[in-house]
Design a protein around this nucleic acid. Sequence first.
DNA 1: CGTTATACATACAACCATGAATGAATGGTG
DNA 2: CACCATTCATTCATGGTTGTATGTATAACG
Lengths: 211, 211
Amino acid sequence: MAKVTKEEAMLTRHRLLDSAETVFHSKGFSRTTLEDIAQEAGFTRGAVYWHFKNKSDVFHAMCERARLPMEEIAEAVTDSALNDPLEHLRLLCISFLKKSVEDKHCQKVFDILFHKCEFVDPADPVYKRQQEAFKRAEKLVENLLKRAVLKKLLPINLDTRMATIIFRATIEGILRSWLFLPQHYNLKNQAENLVDACIDTLRFGKTLQKK
Amino acid sequence: MAKVTKEEAMLTRHRLLDSAETVFHSKGFSRTTLEDIAQEAGFTRGAVYWHFKNKSDVFHAMCERARLPMEEIAEAVTDSALNDPLEHLRLLCISFLKKSVEDKHCQKVFDILFHKCEFVDPADPVYKRQQEAFKRAEKLVENLLKRAVLKKLLPINLDTRMATIIFRATIEGILRSWLFLPQHYNLKNQAENLVDACIDTLRFGKTLQKK
DNA sequence: CGTTATACATACAACCATGAATGAATGGTG
DNA sequence: CACCATTCATTCATGGTTGTATGTATAACG
């Protein structure tokens, strides 16, 4: 028993990543061994060490794989809301939240990133990934807010900097809290309302306006 | 060299917890050894095993110690804003955020809880602590919101449930994001504005009103 | 003032995960 | 068809951490 088709090899790679998702999710990053991951997928550690450098590399690959569906969403939204930056932001957040509820892969990976791993070494690729994701999200939001202001969809004197910070923090907080206690309420049903409420803050809040 | 005063023993206990804070914060929970904690404080593992059952027990004690200053804040606020539930909530959040910035102990512990440990086993005391802290915060917020509605400080038809969820998530998200990138902006200066913006959402948001 | 429990340091045994080294079997390639 | 690289399994050596057991000096106590 050894040596399979290239396709089969890619399949085992994905099975290993699936396995990593489940095991990381149930045991946490630090407590899972490569033995756990291999066994869950029906292989041995040899397979893992062939496809990946070490445990951190498995983690990195797992995150990278989960990134694609999210980017697809972003592109789909960009196409559908071309000239309305505020609607763009709205749809982006709603689909982001809904996707995190519906897609079990995304859900697990986000839950792992929020609650089942540690961010310690700033040189760690996963740490840098998160930092960049944060900054990218901020730039995206702030850019959309500024365009919305220009189009008079938001108050002319909106403090876009503070608005961005609080808006992004809210979306993140909503997802993180729900992942921590999913049975607490139905996020899938409430996603629109919650996002709309966030946008209300931008529209009607006096505190976020300068001077 | 052995056997010191009871006071000295209490002092070493606190020094070990200080040490735990710094080491957990710099290396993360899973990567820190009891040897690390002991050495940082100038003791050996024997001292740690005398004062605590194991590493989880150290962690638990560390959290427990950091809890007190936060509760003092809550009490101080309760005294100062007796008949204005909305102002109560406002002061509570502002002082909570400011304390997290000013008090280095609180800051480290929160950073550890957010980014440098894993929440896996629901039976783990620390996991349960967090769950209960979450639920307590929600009840506190919702209670204050309901009282504010009764006092006509907030719209009569406010959906307090959703309002609570989004409000608490925002405050948590703000703190977490700032801890992740503290140099991103000055939270201490902006705390009031951010909290006021959250309260604006409750006041002026149409989406959070029922029907 | 003698005894005992305390507050640590030191020493020891056991386990477990890692990473590399090796093996084996087959698919791809000329 | 022969050879080599691929894909995984198996084995081995190693180190590092844990928990406990033991040692010890002294503060607390009667």
